[in-house]
Amino acid sequence: MHDLISGILMPSAEMTSPIWIGKVSPNMFAKRYGISRTHVARIFRQAREAGLLGWAKNSNRGDCWVSPELVRAYRSWQAVKLAALSQAFHYACLQIGIRR
């Protein structure tokens, strides 16, 4: 997911249309993360069917776009994750006697 969103150079606060991120290859994802190409293709198909991402050409070819909804969901997920890390760090500091 991070690889897809990191392709967005300067996301606008008011995203209303698809954001083009360039070439995205399911084969590249499969090789990079050591998972089957079939699994990656299945995930991309589900995301495409949900309107979360797509390609300029058929068969996942050409430049890829991600939806504003996907970017917002990713940002929300990151915020929740970072808040949990902050709480865990604060708790760990308290356990060893460090106060902020």
Rank of each mutant, 00 (worst) to 15 (best):
G7S: 05
I8L: 02
I8P: 02
I8G: 03
L9I: 12
L9V: 11
L9P: 13
L9Y: 07
M10H: 15
P11I: 02
S12R: 08
A13R: 08
E14S: 15
M15A: 12
M15P: 10
T16S: 15
S17E: 11
S17R: 12
I19L: 07
W20H: 11
W20K: 08
W20C: 14
W20E: 15
W20A: 10
I21H: 02
I21F: 00
I21Y: 00
I21C: 07
G22K: 02
G22P: 04
K23S: 14
V24M: 01
S25C: 03
S25I: 03
S25F: 00
P26I: 08
P26L: 07
P26Y: 03
N27I: 06
N27L: 08
F29S: 04
F29M: 03
A30P: 10
K31G: 12
K31E: 12
R32D: 05
Y33A: 09
Y33S: 10
Y33F: 07
Y33M: 07
Y33I: 12
G34P: 06
I35N: 04
S36L: 03
S36R: 04
S36D: 07
S36T: 09
S36V: 07
R37P: 05
T38A: 14
T38K: 04
T38C: 12
H39V: 13
H39D: 12
V40L: 00
V40F: 00
R42N: 15
R42W: 05
R42C: 14
F44V: 13
R45S: 11
Q46D: 13
A47D: 10
E49D: 10
E49T: 14
E49K: 08
A50S: 12
A50F: 00
G51E: 02
G51P: 04
G51A: 07
G51S: 07
L52N: 09
L53P: 05
G54N: 04
W55H: 04
W55T: 09
W55K: 03
W55L: 05
